[in-house]
Design a protein around this nucleic acid. Structure first.
Lengths: 184, 184
DNA sequence: CTGTCCATGTAAGGCGTTACATGATTGT
DNA sequence: ACAATCATGTAACGCCTTACATGGACAG
């Protein structure tokens, strides 16, 4: 389960509450591993049971107890093991491609509409990636660990390259359909 | 649920048994929508209940009854509606990127090993795509519906472009890590 | 005083995977 | 004779999503 390992990855940097973890996901890995709140809490409980984490309960008057999770030695070992183990390709599902695949049953207009919508979304996503990229580039010179920063930025570069390829594909597809050029 | 709509897409071309459907998936859309056998049978039953399909039972002496599924008018309407409706971007999970993101906690060797394994897998996948592509190109001139064939081939082109982008990204990452060049 | 943030969780349901179960037919 | 293919399904489990539930602190 990758969610578990992503949590271990964050907690190995520093102890966090469930709430903080959710923010950490949303601010970084959500583009390739969205995590939802209720699932985080459930998984955290499970991981404590498995001995991967330790839970520290901080009582506060008049407020909910704050629960801080720390990685255990067993958790660190598991993280190291998992991080170094090559994974089989993840089988990604692309419902959009099902639409294209069966596009023979659709008019040119409907088809082009689908493609233009994808184009719009990919463009917007790419702009978001570029903005994050540049913001980090500005801070790069003061980074305490340039190698770690570089690696985290690699995941962004992956997103950018992927979107650029998608855009090129979409534009070509649109043009071919418009010209009724069905060669491939 | 996209599985349902993919099934509608196939059955709109011609009636099939559950077994045939599984083969249809495996021979075409599995790269962007793998479907597993038991799920197909369950979904088929569900779709009959919803009135999207009709089930014809063909008795055969001494063998299991053969069950052929046909799309109903309601199913055709639903397929048309779904095919023409733009979908939000599907959030794809990439466990491999989690490993890279937390790669700061890994040695260069371990990191390069991960990347090389991905490289190998992407190269193999790309070769498979190329082979399918060329096999279809050979048959393209006799196609009864060149537009439909073109569209199904578009999904393959998508896979190829995506893998090419992945390969470029991987090669660049490997080189940068080898040279300890952490710029981005 | 209204909304957003902080902070925790539970419950139900959906989609998908893995394992199990059965038995005839066809090809080597 | 043995394996692969044809052909159908059930059961259990896992991961994720959506909706629900609660309540203090703080900012405009």
């Amino acid at each position: 389960m990758s969610l578990k390992h992503a949590i271990l990855g964050f907690l190995n940097l520093k102890p966090l509450s469930g709430y903080d973890l959710k923010k950490a996901f949303d601010q970084s890995v959500r583009h390739f591993w969205p995590a939802n709140q209720s699932q985080i809490y459930r998984t955290l409980a499970q991981m404590v049971e498995e001995g991967l984490l330790e839970k520290e309960i901080i009582a506060r008057e008049e407020r909910l107890d704050l629960k801080i999770y720390q990685i255990s030695p067993k958790g660190q070992a598991e993280l190291q093991r998992w991080l170094a183990t090559p994974l089989p390709t993840s089988e990604n599902r692309e419902p959009f491609l099902i639409q294209i695949f069966f596009g023979g049953q659709l008019s040119d207009e409907a088809l082009l509409h689908l493609l233009h919508e994808q184009l719009k979304m990919a463009e917007e996503r790419l702009q978001v990636y570029e903005a994050i990229y540049q913001a980090n580039q500005a801070k790069a010179s003061q980074a305490s660990d340039p190698r770690a920063l570089f690696l985290s930025m690699l995941t962004l570069a992956y997103g950018k390259k992927g979107d650029q390829a998608l855009l090129a594909w979409l534009r070509e597809a649109i043009e071919q359909i418009e010209n009724k050029n069905y060669t491939f």
